[in-house]
């Protein structure tokens, strides 16, 4: 039983990181209808920005994290401005291909600047743990889970109450009608990319700090976060978080039990589970858990 709880907690900690990555996908998709495949490499970039500010420049960890968040927001805006704005009105497919290209470009830039070797981003939490009954909770994991909830809460308030959030929803529903209301689609799209960049940096920092090492491959997590987003329904921040947790927990449970109980599935089966879960849920609910089925336009 304790093993099970311990694995569930590890799953939530992993899922929280998926959720943070997925939230970046969601905000861009919601505002523009584009799935940004470069999100994973911006996650990595955020981690390296923090590494650079903390280890190379010697700034305090928190300050370094803030710099990384701001830096990735700027990267998001630049990417939108230089590449994607030119593509507005073009088929979504072409835009998506551009983001795939961008993924490789950013990865290359990262290895050019910081190299392939594992780095140490820093460990503000140490190996501190909290014990709850028989299970041990690492402080860094608690932070990741807390941050995921914090960010999703902030998203909720932003979309619900702020003018920019409302403008973003309006643009997502009907771009021309939003323009007719005087909403600047450009500003909305730039804001979405900036937010996605900041969230990516938070994800990157929680992924690569603490006991984990920082490698350029840290962005590959997006491959597992991607099903989390689809699961949640592409447009729903809450769905992204739930999707993240579901995938994180099934993944750690698989890693914990499958080798002993179903070894015939082969080694490393847990890396397939995000996709297996995604397919299963999509078969039952084609729009994902929280996907909005559009209200019929009368």
């Amino acid at each position: 039983m304790n093993d099970f709880l311990q694995l569930c907690f590890a799953g939530m900690a992993l899922g929280a990181r998926y959720a943070l990555v997925a939230l970046g996908f969601v905000v861009i998709h919601r505002a523009t209808g584009v799935i940004n495949f470069a999100q994973g490499s911006i996650v990595a970039l955020g981690a390296y920005f923090a590494f650079n500010a903390h280890q190379t420049w010697g700034l305090p960890f928190l300050l370094a994290a803030i710099i990384a968040v701001a830096g990735c927001a700027v990267v998001g805006i630049i990417v939108e401005r230089l590449l994607l704005r030119k593509m507005s009105g073009q088929p979504v497919f072409s835009v998506i291909m551009i983001t795939i290209g961008l993924l490789f470009v950013i990865d290359q830039i990262i290895t050019m600047i910081w190299g392939q070797d594992a780095q140490n981003l820093g460990d503000p939490w140490g190996i501190d743990t909290v014990e709850a009954g028989e299970i041990v909770l690492a402080v860094v994991d608690l932070w990741a889970i807390g941050l995921a909830f914090l960010v999703v809460g902030a998203f909720f308030l932003f979309f619900r109450y702020s003018s920019t959030g409302l403008a973003m929803r309006a643009v997502a529903i009907d771009e021309e009608a939003a323009m007719a209301r005087g909403i600047s689609v450009r500003r909305v799209v730039a804001t979405a990319w900036a937010i996605a960049g900041s969230v990516a940096a938070v994800a990157g920092i929680t992924l690569a700090s603490g006991p984990a090492a920082l490698r350029p491959s840290v962005g590959l997590i997006a491959l597992a976060a991607f099903p989390a987003m689809i699961l949640g329904g592409l447009d729903s921040p809450l769905g992204a978080v739930l999707g993240g947790f579901i995938i994180g927990i099934t993944q750690t449970l698989t890693a914990g039990y499958q080798p002993a109980h179903a070894s015939w599935l082969g080694q490393d089966f847990q890396s397939v589970t995000p996709y297996a879960v995604m397919i299963l849920i999509l078969l039952i609910r084609p729009h994902g858990l929280f996907g909005t089925k559009e209200v019929e336009r009368l």
């Binding site: 409302l166 309006a170 021309e176 009608a177 909005t292």
Partner: peptide, 10 residues
């Protein structure tokens, strides 16, 4: 606008 074009989900 023609066809009303309100935001149906809002």
């Amino acid at each position: 606008m023609e066809g009303r074009r309100i935001f149906p989900d809002l």
